[in-house]
Design a protein around this nucleic acid. Structure first.
Lengths: 117, 117
DNA sequence: AAGATACTTAAGCGTATGCTTCACCAACCG
DNA sequence: CGGTTGGTGAAGCATACGCTTAAGTATCTT
């Protein structure tokens, strides 16, 4: 799922499909690569469940599957909220208790700090 | 960003960090791989902006950065909503107008359909 | 029936990824 | 002081990934 969204081309394809269903060649048109490559990307998207397609005659029509998007969204939002909740508790704690660490890591003062953005 | 979340190990690390900050070796402990490998994963996470860390003495402490998580979440939820809105409009249209296609693809009947889940 | 269209499938290729090992440095601890 | 702990950096290696070319196969179109 995240694997599928990791590639910029695939993300473009998903964006395109969010504006409405499209055939494989429609999907390929704006992309600077072979139809073959696009089909391969499509396969990844389908395996991940993000996209579905059905063929009618000789044209395959694709559309996004919200279920999968929702799943990814949920994973992220759960982690985020978990952390933010923790962060808020720490804030409240520090507001009431004007010194000393809680349990995790951020100790107090001395020592060469080597931050990495 | 999605690239960073694409790897299961990295996702585990993020999950771990959502329960609170951790040192590199704490992060590495539950993982069946070298410290070196973990550090490399950590580098990816930091480049993506998902994680930050600072070193104090000889131990580097890491924590998640909600900004980045929020960004990913937004991308997904925007696409999803875009599509769902479209889907709803189509539903409403079909409900009122009991036949014929709109603009996109899903034509009506005949033809061998070859669905791919 | 003869094209043209819309994919499909398989093979191959260069680069990126995920990992390991090995050498090394800077705290910290007894 | 010497040893351990916690981490860093550079090679090296196997596999996965993204892409291309090339050779089909159905399905329209004329």
């Amino acid at each position: 799922m995240f694997q599928a969204l990791a590639d910029p081309t695939r993300r473009l394809m998903v964006e395109r499909l969010c504006d409405g269903p499209a055939s494989v060649s429609e999907l390929a048109a704006p992309l600077a690569m072979t139809l073959s490559a696009v089909v391969q990307h499509l396969a990844v998207l389908e395996e991940s469940g993000l996209v579905r397609s059905q063929k009618q005659g000789r044209v395959r029509t694709c559309h996004v599957e919200t279920q999968a998007l929702r799943a990814a969204e949920r994973w992220i939002s759960e982690r985020r909220m978990l952390w933010e909740r923790r962060f808020d508790r720490l804030g409240a704690y520090l507001a009431e208790n004007p010194d000393e660490p809680d349990d995790g890591s951020p100790a107090s003062s001395r020592g060469a700090r080597d931050d990495r953005s």
